[in-house]
Amino acid sequence: MQKIVAIAAAAENNALGKDNDLLWHLPDDFKRFKKLTTGHPIIMGRKTFESFPKPLPNRKHIVITRDKDYTIAFDNCVVVHSLESALELTKKEDLAYIIGGGEIYKLALEYTHIIELTRVHAEFDADTYFPELNKENWEVILEEYHPKDDKHKLDFTYITYVRKC
Results as ranks from 00 to 15, higher is better:
Gln2Val: 06
Lys3Ala: 11
Ile4Lys: 01
Ala6Leu: 12
Ile7Cys: 11
Ala8Phe: 06
Ala8Pro: 04
Ala8Gly: 04
Ala10Phe: 07
Asn14Gln: 13
Gly17Ser: 11
Gly17Pro: 01
Lys18Ser: 12
Asn20Leu: 00
Asp21Tyr: 00
Leu23His: 03
Trp24Cys: 04
Pro27Asn: 05
Pro27Leu: 06
Asp28Val: 01
Asp29Ser: 10
Phe30Asn: 01
Phe30Gly: 01
Phe33Gln: 01
Phe33Arg: 01
Leu36Lys: 15
Gly39Ser: 01
Gly39Ala: 08
Gly39Arg: 07
Gly39Thr: 01
Gly39Met: 08
Pro41Asp: 12
Ile43Arg: 01
Met44Ile: 02
Met44Lys: 04
Gly45Asn: 06
Ser51Val: 00
Phe52Gln: 01
Lys54Val: 00
Lys54Phe: 00
Leu56Cys: 04
Pro57Gln: 08
Asn58Pro: 00
Arg59Thr: 02
Arg59His: 03
Lys60Ile: 07
Ile62Gln: 07
Ile62Asn: 04
Val63Leu: 00
Ile64Ser: 00
Asp67Tyr: 02
Lys68Glu: 14
Lys68Ala: 13
Asp69Val: 02
Tyr70Lys: 03
Thr71Val: 13
Thr71Tyr: 06
Phe74Leu: 01
Asp75Thr: 11
Cys77Thr: 11
Ser82Ile: 11
Ser82Trp: 07
Ser82Phe: 09
Leu83Val: 08
Glu84Leu: 10
Glu84His: 10
Ser85Ala: 15
Ala86Lys: 09
Glu88Ile: 06
Thr90Cys: 15
Lys92Met: 13
Lys92His: 14
Leu95His: 14
Leu95Phe: 15
Ala96Asn: 07
Tyr97Asn: 02
Ile98Met: 00
Ile99Glu: 03
Gly100Glu: 05
Gly100Gln: 05
Gly102Ala: 10
Glu103Val: 12
Glu103Met: 14
Glu103Arg: 14
Ile104Met: 07
Lys106Thr: 15
Leu107Ala: 13
Ala108Tyr: 06
Glu110Asn: 14
Tyr111Asp: 11
Ile114Asp: 14
Ile114Trp: 10
Ile115Met: 07
Arg119Gly: 09
His121Phe: 06
His121Glu: 14
Glu123Phe: 02
Phe124Asp: 11
Phe124Cys: 08
Asp125Tyr: 12
Asp127Tyr: 08
Pro131Asn: 11
Glu132Met: 12
Asn134Thr: 08
Glu136Phe: 00
Glu136Ile: 03
Asn137Ser: 12
Glu139Thr: 14
Glu139Phe: 09
Ile141Pro: 13
Tyr145Gln: 11
His146Thr: 06
Lys148Asn: 14
Lys151His: 12
Lys153Ile: 04
Asp155Pro: 06
Asp155Val: 07
Phe156Ala: 08
Thr157Lys: 05
Ile159Met: 04
Ile159Gly: 10
Thr160Pro: 07
Thr160Trp: 08
Tyr161Pro: 11
Val162Asn: 11
Val162Tyr: 09
Arg163Ile: 04
